[in-house]
């Protein structure tokens, strides 16, 4: 769960002052038991709309992967990773995609994707 202070801190890290009505509605819906389908215009803040409630659902005492985000392009996956990092939640994020050269010292997990 999240205290108002925690939420304020995250928004501050993201450089925004308050959630928009769309993001508040998404937060409310995603925290319920049902699945959510959110349709909102381009550039209206959908990434934050789903990342914030997901953060609220994460359990700090669980060490395994708790959430998987699938994105249509690799660069969009990288962008979502950046937004999560900016939120400074303390939860680790790992971005996985195909076609990157394997470096001996790297511990990145690579999932080959067809495109």
């Amino acid at each position: 769960m999240i205290t108002p202070q925690q939420q304020e801190q995250i928004l501050k890290s993201l450089g925004i002052s308050a959630l928009k009505p769309m993001q508040e509605a998404a937060q409310k819906a995603i925290l319920q038991d049902n699945d959510t389908f959110l349709i909102a215009p381009t550039g209206s803040g959908k990434t934050i709309a789903f990342l914030l409630p997901i953060f609220q659902l994460l359990k700090p005492d669980q060490n395994s992967v708790q959430c998987l985000i699938l994105a249509p392009t690799r660069e969009l996956a990288l962008q979502i990773e950046q937004v999560w990092k900016k939120m400074a939640t303390g939860y680790k994020v790992n971005v996985c995609y195909g076609a990157i050269r394997w470096k001996p010292k790297s511990r990145i997990s690579v999932i080959p994707l067809p495109y």
């Binding site: 769309m22 819906a29 049902n34 959510t36 959110l38 349709i39 909102a40 215009p41």
Partner: peptide
């Protein structure tokens, strides 16, 4: 998808 809540902000 299981009985989703659909939010539409057009």
């Amino acid at each position: 998808l299981n009985t989703p809540t659909t939010l539409t902000f057009t």
